[in-house]
């Protein structure tokens, strides 16, 4: 790997975005790369937009990624995905969780949540590597909607392999070791299943 890989994770406070980026940066480190992570969040305890950058590479200097240089977007929410669109590099790998969290400005104000068509069309103009998956539904089918972020990480791991972003040094075992390090003993099996379910979801969609 010569150039660094630039990840952007986006979501709404409370969705587990920061936890997922903690996993992602540690996976980079565990794969023998340099890795850095930077959270960008405002004042809000929850309910506000949250973004986080993760970078992997032989050498990584800046923890931040400049607009136009994001190689991989993982978004936990559809509107937040659209908000980061102008930060993507052409043909970036994009994984979007099919969740809608309406902001207050759309609920009680006059602003309008964008339609699925608007979102899909916008991303289609930037990249041909865009996947939508129902992280919540998959997590719920496993019995716990809270593992949606691990489902998404599983899906991301499969996408990185499929689209040739990550090298062969990055195995499922590396991901699972990092994830199981972070969850209590009684939830390990559930998280392993969630990770695998996310991988399977990507294998099924193909391109």
């Amino acid at each position: 790997m010569k150039e660094a890989i630039n990840f952007l994770l986006a979501g709404v406070g409370g969705q587990g975005t920061i936890l997922a980026s903690d996993v992602l940066v540690s996976v980079g480190l565990a794969a023998g790369l340099q890795a850095k992570q930077a959270e960008v969040h405002g004042m809000s305890q929850r309910g506000g937009s949250v973004t986080s950058f993760v970078r992997w590479g032989e050498v990584v200097f800046s923890p931040l990624v400049g607009a136009g240089e994001v190689d991989v977007l993982l978004s936990f929410e559809k509107l937040e995905a659209l908000r980061t669109l102008n930060q993507l590099r052409s043909n970036a790998v994009v994984l979007i969780n099919n969740q809608v969290i309406e902001p207050l400005t759309a609920i009680s104000g006059d602003q309008k949540y964008p339609s699925d068509k608007v979102i899909k069309d916008a991303f289609a103009k930037v990249s041909s590597h865009v996947e939508f998956i129902g992280g919540e539904e998959i997590a719920r089918s496993l019995g716990n909607p809270r593992v949606a972020n691990v489902v998404l990480l599983g899906a991301l791991s499969a996408l990185l392999e499929r689209d040739g972003v990550a090298g062969p040094e990055l195995t499922s075992e590396t991901w699972l070791t990092v994830i199981t390090d972070r969850v209590p003993q009684k939830h390990i099996e559930l998280n392993q299943k969630a990770f695998q379910a996310g991988r399977d979801a990507i294998k099924k969609t193909g391109i």
Partner: peptide, 20 residues
């Protein structure tokens, strides 16, 4: 210079911090 994607998405609803 690094180019930015030129896609018009229209105004997006903001998520300002609010009292919980």
């Amino acid at each position: 210079h690094v180019a930015l994607p030129e896609v018009e998405t229209g105004p997006l609803p903001s998520r300002p911090p609010v009292l919980c």
